[in-house]
Design a protein around this nucleic acid. Structure first.
Lengths: 205, 205
DNA sequence: CCTTTATATTAACAGTGAACATATTCTTTA
DNA sequence: TAAAGAATATGTTCACTGTTAATATAAAGG
């Protein structure tokens, strides 16, 4: 098996990426439930069965979309963590970036952390779980830098879990409107994120 | 009276309740996306268009299901809050009951707090929002009893929001498998809930 | 009695995901 | 250079879905 530059029979330049992009557009517009393979194919300018050459089925396309989302979230998180030297400020930025991501792509966020499609989450899709754990790493890293020594891996995991659970719940409530009237501007969101992280921090340390 | 008066033209005893029950069964089995009106009608033993006499459409049935879920959650929360006199223990019980509900009915929980069906949450359905705010009341009550006087309504709302966001995120992570390996038994869940509430409490007060 | 009203049913339409056989096009090989 | 092979895209088909329209049924009220 040798590495080929181009695959045989390829007519479209990069159909897989084009399909993902089209699916992303329709996702943020209509939501995951209403996303139809036919509409995506139509938007990409190919026939309705062409996507089946790149994705096993509708669920496969949604999984790829979710994985892509986790990937972007991971890079965002890593960038936010490395931008600040002070671990406390880094943690605040992590939380802020997280909520900002959820707010910027609400439907994608719901797809990532929601029921997936079968109703049991993505925990059978290895590609999604891999990206997911990757997006978890920066947080654990910052927590590790933050806690007073000596720190056990269990302590780090506990702290990261608490932080993640809180920010995740905050994002979910932001999206579904429970918190929408309380946080209108981006600055208010940043302030809320900062305050909340402070609260959690005081409790954990 | 056990049986209400039969309305004109009524052939089925209480079709609306029967449909809701059937829908609940199929919901926990297949998830919200795969729930079809036809299957629900089939399970209830009526024709496929009979549900349209009791619900506007599929979304209406799902909304009724979500509202019923919030109603049950509200009664659970109220019972848990009134069972304990000590506000701190009451808060712990609230969180425990919340996560227990999410764990016991994961698909219903996702339906309640997820995208609904249109992708914008339920915040246009008044029936759902009413039940939702009702399930929020016990928590705010306990927070009010817990905070040192004098307390402003804003403080109470902030505290309740932080608690709710955290428990909500915890429940979501419990359901989608992110926390499944860490919390197997019900006792472990109770312990985690207790610890977390303590952390939050130390931060808020 | 007859009319009204809510209920339930059958029939039909349009759109969906998926499976199949088939045609096209490019890479590899002889 | 030309044939072989494989990946890709297509049209068609099937079972299923949500929804609407028209129709039949049963109870309530005159």
């Amino acid at each position: 098996m040798a590495t080929r530059k181009r695959r045989p029979g390829e007519k479209h330049g990069d159909l897989k990426a084009a399909l993902l992009q089209a699916a992303g557009k329709r996702l943020e517009q209509d939501g995951p439930e209403k996303l139809s393979l036919r509409a995506v194919a139509r938007l990409a300018g190919v026939s309705q069965t062409a996507p089946y050459n790149h994705f096993a089925n509708r669920e496969g396309l949604l999984a790829a979309l979710a994985a892509q989302g986790f990937e972007r979230l991971a890079t965002n998180q890593a960038a936010a963590a490395q931008a600040n030297d002070d671990p406390r400020i880094a943690l605040e930025c992590l939380g802020y970036e997280y909520t900002r991501f959820a707010r910027g792509h609400p439907k994608l966020y719901r797809l990532m952390f929601g029921a997936g499609v079968g109703g049991e989450g993505w925990h059978d899709d290895e590609l999604v779980t891999a990206s997911k754990s990757r997006s978890f790493a920066p947080l654990r890293d910052v927590i590790c830098r933050l806690l007073p020594e000596p720190v056990s891996p269990e302590q780090v995991d506990n702290g990261a879990m608490v932080c993640w659970a809180f920010v995740h719940g905050l994002s979910a409530m932001l999206i579904d409107g429970t918190l929408a009237d309380r946080v209108e501007s981006d600055d208010a969101l940043a302030e809320l994120s900062r305050q909340s992280i402070a609260i959690i921090l005081d409790g954990v340390t």
